[in-house]
Design a binder for these strands. Structure first.
Lengths: 216, 216
DNA sequence: CGCGTTCGTTAGAAGTTATAACTGGCAGCT
DNA sequence: AGCTGCCAGTTATAACTTCTAACGAACGCG
C-alpha cells in the first residue's frame, strides 16, 4: 500500500508484514468495530503465533493509532485529490459521503466515540489542519453573500487561530465550520443506523444540507 | 433511583443492588468509556466477588444495554420536561447541550460509534420516537416561513412514516430532522474533542445553528 | 564466512468474561 | 415456631485476552 520503498530487505519485509497485519485488522474492524480488534485473532489469520505481532507493533493501542492515522491520511488524500481536480464545495461534500459509506468503521475511527484519556498523535491534528485548509480554499471560492455578518462570523473573525495563516474572510470560516459539523451530523447518524426504519432517504437530507451550505 | 417500588424484600434488595452496580458502571464509563467497563472491577468496588454480578445481569452486554436504555430515558425525560414547561425550539436545543455536556460518555452511549452487529432493543427506538414527537411539536409551533417548499420538504412529505401520525407540515418535518442532525454534528465533534485547540468557542457555533434553525 | 541483529517460537503472568457446583442464610408457608 | 425451598454469594475452572521473558534459529551485513 504505502511506504514499500525501503532500502534493506529486512525493512522491506518488515513493512510488508506490517501492511498484512493492518489489512487483517481493517477486516476485523469492518465487521466488529475497533473495540473488538484482537491481536491474537490477527496472528492466527496470518499464521504466526500471538506474540510475534509485538515485533511490529508495541501494543494494541499503537496498532489502532496507526489505523487511525491511515484513516486520516486516506480522507485527507481523497479530499485533496478532489480539490486539485477543481471540485467545488458540493463535490467535496459528496466525496466525503462516498468515503464514509465505503467503510463506516473507518469513518468512526476518525470521528467516532473517543476514549476519554486518549491523546491524538501530533500528525493526525496536522492532517486535520491540511483538510481544513483545503476546505477553506473551497469556501473562500464561493461567491460572498450580500447578507450582513452574522454573530458567528464576528466571533470567528476574532478567533481564527485554527485557520492558521489562511486569508479566508470570516464568512468563509463560518461556512467551513458549518460544512464540517452539518455534514458530519447527517453522516454519523446515518452510519450509526439512527435513520434505519424511518422511511426517508438520508441522501436527500445530505443533499439538502449541501444546498443550504452552497447558498446560505 | 428508579423502580424501588417492589413488593417482596427480595425484589427490593435486588433492585437496590442492580442500581448500585449501574452506579459504579456509570462512574467507570465516565472516565474510561463504555468499552473499558469491567464487571470484575465493579464487583471489587462493591465488595463482592466477580461472578456475583451475574445474578443481576446475564452478561456484560445486558448491563451496557441497560445503561443505554437509561441514557435514552434520561434524555427523553429532560426533553419532555422542558417541552411541558413550554420550551421552544431554542430552549430544547440548550437542554440537549446541557444534557450532553453533563456526561459526554452518556451522550456517546446513545449517539456514539455503534457495534456493527448490535441491534438496539425495541424500547430504545420507542423512546426515540417519543423524543421525535416532542421535537415535532416544537417545530410545528414555529411560525411557518413564506419560502417555497424545498426539495427536502417534498421528499419528506412522501416519506413521513417516521413521524407516525403526527400532523406536522413538511416544513416542520424538515426542521425537526435538521435540528437533530445539525446539533448532533456540533455536539458530537465538540464532545469528541475535535474543536480543542482550535481557539473558537463551540457554544458560539451551537448558538449560530440554533438561530439558523429558528429562522431558516 | 562468521557474527550480530532480528524474527518467531514457547512459557507464563495478569487480566477479562462467563459457567458450574457448592454453601449459607433469608423468606415465606404451614 | 419450625421447616423447606429458593436464592445470593462463594470458589474453582475454562477459555479467552494483552503482553513480557527467554530461547533458538535464520537472515543479512561487513
Amino acid at each position: 500500500m504505502a511506504e514499500s520503498d525501503a532500502k534493506t530487505p529486512r525493512e522491506r519485509y518488515r513493512a510488508q508484514v506490517r501492511e498484512e497485519i493492518k489489512k487483517h485488522a481493517w477486516e476485523q474492524i469492518a465487521d466488529a468495530g475497533a473495540s473488538a480488534l484482537s491481536l491474537n485473532a490477527i496472528a492466527k489469520q496470518i499464521g504466526v503465533s500471538g506474540p510475534a505481532l509485538y515485533r511490529y507493533f508495541a501494543n494494541r493501542d499503537e496498532l489502532i493509532t496507526e489505523l487511525v492515522r491511515d484513516a486520516y491520511r486516506s480522507l485527507a488524500d481523497t479530499f485533496r485529490a478532489r480539490a486539485e481536480a477543481g471540485a467545488d464545495l458540493a463535490e467535496l461534500a459528496h466525496a466525503l459521503r462516498e468515503w464514509a459509506l465505503a467503510d463506516p468503521q473507518r469513518y468512526f475511527l476518525v470521528y467516532g466515540t473517543p476514549v476519554p484519556g486518549y491523546r491524538a498523535p501530533e500528525d493526525t491534528t496536522r492532517i486535520a489542519s491540511e483538510m481544513m485548509a483545503v476546505l477553506l480554499d473551497a469556501c473562500a471560492a464561493v461567491a460572498p453573500d450580500a447578507s450582513p455578518a452574522a454573530p458567528l462570523d464576528d466571533h470567528l473573525a476574532e478567533h481564527r487561530a485554527w485557520a492558521r495563516d489562511h486569508q479566508a474572510p470570516p464568512s468563509a470560516l463560518s461556512r467551513a465550520l458549518l460544512f464540517w459539523t452539518r455534514l458530519h451530523g447527517v453522516l454519523s447518524l446515518e452510519l450509526a443506523g439512527h435513520f434505519t426504519g424511518m422511511g426517508f432517504d438520508p441522501a436527500e437530507l445530505y443533499a439538502a444540507e449541501i444546498r443550504a451550505l452552497a447558498n446560505p
